[in-house]
Amino acid sequence: MEILINILLFAIMVACAMAIAKIRHLFAVVMLSGAFSLLAALLFVTLDAVDVAFTEAAVGAGISTVLMLGTIALTVRREKPSYRSSFVPLLVVILTGAVLVYGTLDMPNFGDPNAVVHQHVGPEYIERIPKEVDVPNFVTAILASYRGFDTLGEVAVVFTAGIGVVLLLSGLGAKARRPKILAQNSDNNEASS
């Protein structure tokens, strides 16, 4: 069942990617890339990587969609048709994909409990977490308890970035320009009245 769902998800993703490559109307491309990110997030959820999926959905479908819309507002809405041959890019993509597939040949099977990564510190955490932290999700326990200071630093970084974005979006530059515009408007109003 899970395999069927994964195959269907991948099929929809491929259809989405082909639509992105085909459409020249850039607004539709932005919307389609948001849908593509949501599909990628769903694949991460089926792989049980919920935190990665959430980052993908927030960044891919949320922030970058808005950033791309901002770019479209600053530039043009239609993509110019390209007359160059796409043979070389196709070759590069196929080669990169082949190298990536070749790289997976050495990897252990998905979910294999005897894989090397599951033999190092994993068993110790699995033994200690129910006794010491008692949180159902082990990733949460490690991030919030065993590596709490690390997460605190990350939160500080993200908070600083958030303050920066809010300051940029709140339009400090626009406020500096506004008195002039307001003055002009009041001049016009006085002239018209």
Binding site: A61, G62, T65, V66, A73, L168, S170, G171
Partner: peptide, 29 residues
């Protein structure tokens, strides 16, 4: 977590529509 996705979806749609309407995201004149 799916509830969080619903929140993201809502905020994203609001952002897109606000962008349509005002061509800006922050302080709307």
């Amino acid at each position: 977590i799916s509830l969080l996705y619903a929140l993201i979806n809502f905020a994203g749609t609001i952002a897109i529509l606000k962008f349509f309407r005002y061509r800006a995201l922050g302080d709307v004149p």
